[in-house]
């Protein structure tokens, strides 16, 4: 009987109160893997990080233990996916899966207001000459095919 009720709830949300729905959403969020959470934030133009509840150190969501004190209790912190390029390259031979893209740059950028850097894929770059260290970029989304997509701003 209980199973049947659960099945009905999955088929239709009818009968769920707001509290139940919120719990389910929280559970779904909890069930996401670390990388899935990072990707979800990236699709909203954000970079997801964790703040260590023991020492306050902030690091990328994808790291499982605090780099400073090795604690594993965190509070999520989202940063705007905006920052300045620290280094970059354009490549004439691309790995498989990237052959169909127009020339692109692989970029490392320092995330504004965060103590870390992130790498991403910046499409539509014909030549490295069009870029320079310090160029401002922002996260546009996460593509299953090309990773963390960036754009110049």
């Amino acid at each position: 009987m209980e199973l049947l009720a659960q099945a009905q709830q999955f088929i239709s949300l009818e009968g769920w109160d707001k509290e139940g729905l919120s719990e389910m959403k929280q559970q779904q969020q909890k069930d996401l893997s670390s990388r899935e959470k990072f990707i979800k934030s990236a699709n909203a133009g954000k970079i997801l990080a964790n703040k260590c509840l023991r020492c306050g150190h902030i690091m990328l969501e994808t790291i499982y233990y605090c780099e400073k004190c090795f604690g594993n209790k965190f509070e999520p912190v989202e940063f705007e996916g905006i920052g300045n390029m620290v280094t970059y390259t354009t490549q004439d031979v691309a790995p498989e899966g990237f052959e169909d893209t127009e020339s692109y740059a692989w970029v490392v950028f320092k995330v504004d207001n965060a103590p870390f850097r992130v790498s991403g894929f910046l499409p539509g770059v014909k030549s490295a000459k069009g870029l320079s260290i310090g160029t401002k970029v922002k996260v546009s989304s996460f593509s299953p095919k090309h990773g963390l997509l960036l754009q110049k701003i």
Binding site: T87, T89, Q91, P95, Y104, W106, V108, S119
Partner: peptide
């Protein structure tokens, strides 16, 4: 996740260095 998956090759990684 951060490098090859974002299109970086090894020449690309060392070029950035």
């Amino acid at each position: 996740f951060y490098e090859g998956g974002n299109g970086a090759s090894f020449p690309g990684l060392f070029a950035s260095i």
